[in-house]
Write a protein that binds this DNA or RNA. Structure first.
Length: 293
DNA sequence: CGGTTATGTATAG
DNA sequence: TATACCTAACCGC
């Protein structure tokens, strides 16, 4: 998926283009017909991202909980109030940016297009539309259930009131490798496979090191760098972790990351070939020199 | 056109 | 640890 930064961009977008609007909700694909009927005609009050989950709060104690999973994505279109709205979700290539959607920001908006492909949910306001494809989770819950779902998540580096000490104490109290813990959404909410690899490289920490062997300041460094990287991700709409110097003058898209998906290629800092291994069913990447342990 | 791949998670065993 | 979920782009034939 789409790591946490994408979900925060989505929540912002829903808040700016749909909040306060009455929405027609449907499920062109049919798999969400019952849930769509519950929401149809409701007014969107607010949108919130916590980690990789998004909560769209409607009036009448109705909340649409969406988790994009590995392949989910939203696309948008509409009149001038939708200017800048992009398709946000699972990119298909490393470093890919969000794609402008068909008629987002059109000066003459004539309503939503015929649904293309498997559209699980379609939201339509007087000003535009949003289509959701391929989510892992998509359900209508209550505000109380939203609170319960959020209580199962760890602190989100992108929420200003998140408590870094909660993350630090969790990660340092378990012998589980730090690279496994960073993918555990109950430890820190929003990190995915790219941020895991990149933040551990930047902090010079081997993914296999047990959490208990991290000093508090090392865990705090992981948190602080994750906040920085994910804020950059929200701003850019892509995960760019390399500095211009590390890219050696090359464009961001050709060298966006230090280690992610660079198996066998030379480390951008020391030239040592990047290693990869399976860790908790996902590929982890690291530089054996810069992240000796 | 079929096989592969993906920034994720839940569940079974 | 393995598999299911179930979408779309990409690649090789």
């Amino acid at each position: 998926m789409p790591e946490g930064h994408s979900v925060h961009r989505l929540a912002k977008q829903f808040g700016s283009v749909f909040a306060g609007e009455q929405l027609a909700v449907s499920s062109p694909q049919g798999r969400f017909a019952a849930g769509a009927a519950l929401l149809d005609g409701g007014t969107l009050l607010s949108a919130l991202a916590h980690g990789k989950q998004m909560f769209l709060r409607f009036d009448g104690d109705r909340v649409l909980r969406v988790h994009l999973g590995l392949y989910g994505a939203w696309s948008f279109g509409g009149d001038a109030t939708f200017r800048g709205a992009s398709s946000i979700g699972a990119p298909r290539r490393v470093g890919e940016s969000e794609q402008p959607t068909g008629d987002a920001g059109a000066s003459t908006y004539a309503g939503p297009p015929e649904p293309v492909g498997a559209v699980r949910v379609r939201l339509v306001s007087p000003h535009g539309w949003a289509d959701l494809r391929g989510p892992t989770a998509c359900e209508v819950i209550t505000a109380a259930e939203e609170q319960a779902a959020r209580a199962r998540l760890g602190p989100d580096p992108l929420q200003p009131d998140s408590d870094a000490t909660v993350f630090v104490s969790k990660v340092t109290s378990s012998i589980t490798p730090v690279g496994v813990q960073l993918m555990n959404q109950a430890v820190i909410a929003g990190i995915g496979n790219i941020y895991r690899a990149e933040v551990l490289f930047l902090q010079g920490i081997n993914p296999w090191r047990p959490g208990k062997q991290l000093r508090d300041d090392e865990a705090g460094g992981i948190w602080a760098d994750t906040v920085r990287l994910m804020k950059d991700g929200v701003r850019e709409g892509r995960i760019i972790t390399t500095t211009p110097e590390a890219r050696n003058g090359r464009p961001k898209r050709s060298a966006p990351n230090y280690v992610y998906k660079r198996t066998g290629e030379p480390c951008r800092r020391c030239g040592t070939p990047i290693l990869t291994a399976e860790m908790a069913a996902r590929n982890v990447y690291w530089c054996p020199q810069c992240q000796a342990d």
